[in-house]
Design a protein around this nucleic acid. Sequence first.
DNA 1: CCAAAAGTGTTGAGATTACACCCATGA
DNA 2: TCATGGGTGTAATCTCAACACTTTTGG
Lengths: 241, 241
Amino acid sequence: MDFRKRDNVTVDCVVFALDTNGLHVLLRNRTLNMYDDDFLEINDWVITGYYVFKSKTLEESADLIFKEITGVAHTDKIQFRTYGNPSRIESEKDLLWVRSRGVQAQTMAIGYYYALPLDVVNLKHDGFKWFKYQALPELGFDHQKIIVDAYEDLKKKIMTEPIIFNFLPVKFTLNDLQFAYESILDVKIDNRNFRKKSLGKPYIVPLNEKRKGVSKKPSKLYVFSKDVYDTVKEKDYIISV
Amino acid sequence: MDFRKRDNVTVDCVVFALDTNGLHVLLRNRTLNMYDDDFLEINDWVITGYYVFKSKTLEESADLIFKEITGVAHTDKIQFRTYGNPSRIESEKDLLWVRSRGVQAQTMAIGYYYALPLDVVNLKHDGFKWFKYQALPELGFDHQKIIVDAYEDLKKKIMTEPIIFNFLPVKFTLNDLQFAYESILDVKIDNRNFRKKSLGKPYIVPLNEKRKGVSKKPSKLYVFSKDVYDTVKEKDYIISV
DNA sequence: CCAAAAGTGTTGAGATTACACCCATGA
DNA sequence: TCATGGGTGTAATCTCAACACTTTTGG
């Protein structure tokens, strides 16, 4: 394998995850202490990006990053936008960081986002943390904008593509599904109407199985069938909420 | 200005245009004759791309290309996808071409597309030609895929964003608008229902002006108001066709 | 006065919303 | 037995699709 990198292009990954508290984003702490350990010059958060290997596709490069920070392999991802403004790094703080690392400031970034259930991830590295989307901390570089762009893209795609199921475990309840839509779109949905629509989708297939545990009454489980979805998606779109 | 280029990244532009025959794509002839003028080693078509200048944004780089080939400045454009597969150039023909030019084969490409009325363009350079989208010629590199990706993106965005108006002159009739939708989505639309829906959109504003000429009965003219659109787009989406 | 494109309303079917109570279980 | 989330049906409204004739002008 050719381990050389394109030194002016990175792949940046926005990792979205869902738990019972709603939508989260995985961030990495960025700190810089030049002279005194007690006085941090920089202490904020960034998404994770890395240079693209010359011998790999962009998707492969993104997957390497994703695997490294979440431990999860093989998830769908969406390329949502590429950033190439030569002055995207221009704040004092960001330039200081770039200089301290000896890397070049004029990089392009190809943005990908991932979606998954939060509890699937065991954070392996220090300095990584989940933040509620509604309560993001101070972000470095143009990562605030990148995350918002990713989120806007997610909200659109969720209406016409089956990405919602990436946020859920393989077996899920209709209430899980409704909660996922509500969290991501930030809306309230009528439960009865939602069920009717969901049950009308052939690719949401019921199992003869119930989930016991947290709740009192056991709830029916469903799986998403990509096979079925692929055969019907032209005629019938996903839940319109 | 810094005229240096990023030698491994290009911006590629798909130019869509509409006339009374439907949707067209602007292509450039690619020929190579190594020994004998009568025997062309390569004779196919490509979209136009060029290296990104280090001192320019991707949008500016795309606009330079677009201006160069169409003579038109200041049009909306959409960045739809970035291509970075290191083996995107692998056919004999494409490698021959790349070698003959002494450029490197491993380039990334950021894809943009433009939309405009066809009659606005005066092709200034030889070797450029409009092709009906439904009848594209043999294409070089992975440009077939790039054009199809752009078109798929266009079809989606046209339902939720006001790009359709870029295909029309500033003053247009409702029948023009309907024809644009029909051409791009490749569907038939009921004229009466279409008018009803269009008239319900506040951002399609009627003028006290009629178009005379080709037709017999003069037709009422409308303009698209971006100002109005921006204030209402959250609540009311564009025509659903 | 005729050819050609512009323009106009109504009805039925299907989809969407709003809304309140019983069910099954674990504690 | 009670607290909790799971699950269910109907009626009113709105939206969408289908459909055919009249109007205005230029030639």
